[in-house]
Design a binder for these strands. Sequence first.
RNA 1: GCGGGAGUAGCUCAGCUGGAUAGAGCAUCGGUCUUCUAAACCGAGGGUCCUGGGUUCGAAUCCCAGUUCCCGCGCCA
Length: 581
Amino acid sequence: MLIEFDSSDTIEGVIRTATTASKHFGEDFEPQVRPADPRFGDFQANGVLPFAKKNNTNPRELAQKLIDALPQTDLWETSIAGPGFINFKLSPSYFLQWLEKFADNESIQKSIQTEKPKKIVLDYSGPNTAKQMHVGHIRSTIIGESLARLLQFLGHEVIRDNHLGDWGTQFGILLYAIKREQIVLDQLGPDPIAKLENLYRQGNKWIKEEESNLAEAREELVKLQNGDSENLTLWRKIKEISMDSFLSIYEILGVRFDHSLGESFYKDKVESIYEKLLSHQICKEDQGALVVFHPEHKRFSKQPFIIRKSDGASNYATTDLATVEYRKNEWNSDQIIYVTDGRQRDHFEQLFLTVEKWYSAEKRESPSLQHVWFGTILGDDNKAIKTRDGEPIKLIDLLNEAISRARKMVIEKKPDLTEEEVEKRSKAIGLGAVRYADLSQDRTLDYVFSWEKMLAMQGNTAPYLQYAVARICSIFRKAQVVPTQIPSTHYQPTTDSERSLARKFLFFPGVIKQTAKELKPHFLGCYLYELATEFSSFYNQSKVMVEEDEIKSLRLTLCARSLSILQIGMDILGIELLEEM
RNA sequence: GCGGGAGUAGCUCAGCUGGAUAGAGCAUCGGUCUUCUAAACCGAGGGUCCUGGGUUCGAAUCCCAGUUCCCGCGCCA
């Protein structure tokens, strides 16, 4: 019998073979193999219950027929429980075979990679220029990066594109403020982006104070959009300053984009969009603007998708349409994934509907479009953190605070480390904590920002996972073997802690699949935490460095597989690991 | 008004798409370091899964109604 990486697949395959051949079941029988409660077994097949219901037979008797039809094997024991569940309790021999078959990170990756690699554009982070990234901006960057890594791990070609908000109306206000204050952009001092942000805030105040100021700001924007050279020069400088600030954050977070084509990149590509959509009668003029309605849709038949404002200017919707076209034509992408705040869901739904009609009118295949949205980070008032007024916590400050708190713990624990080592560990631990705090929770949920939450280092946190890894590495150092060169063994997982750790490995494939299917990193994060918990428990109960070589080899193998899965998983989450803590 | 999301332990959250006695972390209380790293481990207490109906062998999960909070809905992105 072939042992597959995903044990559910192995079991399901065996069941299907049996049921297809059996007169009691047939081809339409769904085994429904799921991880089981450890009290009952390792996997369970639930499919008999609904099938018996549909065919008006006794489920327990039917379950018995299924078991009778299964081939004899020493890989597992089966039993019927409750109303008709079939439990599979895997044998020690199964575990040992699995452990030997998927022996290193490469073979694990190979076993799970896709057969149909796609070219996927991942659109994430996308901060607005002239503003600093604050804590509210962390989610798109971290979630997006993690999904990029996941898809790459699965064998897809991923194009990371940072769709900068560099052509919005904020420039009217900012240019107005710069001119009013007679600011020289080259002389903004050590923290130019903060200065720009203050200017923007000041400008915002001014335009609210007086009508005429608002008019002037609008005029600056029009001049910019019409290619006024003075304003364009200022705009370029602003973008440069912004990019420097973003890049320093990406550097810390280990994020690198293949492209940073902002909205400005598409400003000359929008005219043809209007023409095409008009010629296909997808959009129409309404109240002076060019809009798209979707008559078949209950809501978007009334709620417009504005692709050209009544003043003739383009907007977010327009550039997004042009962006799809560019990514399809120039990069030949099969799929585009947008990682943005959930408040933009209507926008993307409308965008996707519009693209679908447009491409189908031209009989072209549109890329598959997906909006991976996340909840908002809220302030203490339960409202979204916003930049316009007040001073939200800067992202850079959060990251630095995380590193400095980790630093205290690192030094406390090991006072004699070199400065270089302290630096390395504090960074891995502090940033890991922040990343994990966000990634370990369902992305669709809003949460209130708190230092305590973001910087926790005990319990279900990245440092806990990193600590488990450090302990494993320590064992291998003491044992003087490398994880890939452990002597083979005949000793099978026997004790409770050996068995339950080995058992945990088997659920990794399913977790990866689910994470990829729903594009929700928290499935992986939670699993890794559970795995680390199993390992810690194993570590406390079973000494690895024992006299008996056979037992030692098995336990080293369990350490090695824990390490592999933690390495792979943490790498996908973008969290660094340490060999010592 | 229309549409979307959410309501699970004192707090923060999981709950594998309908499975068996609902789980973690934090906090509280108790135990474990001359033994591979105590950022750890073991244990205890803590629940009207918002409320009320329904669907069925079986519901935190699906459907309906109500309720509370959040978000979106014509020229911001």
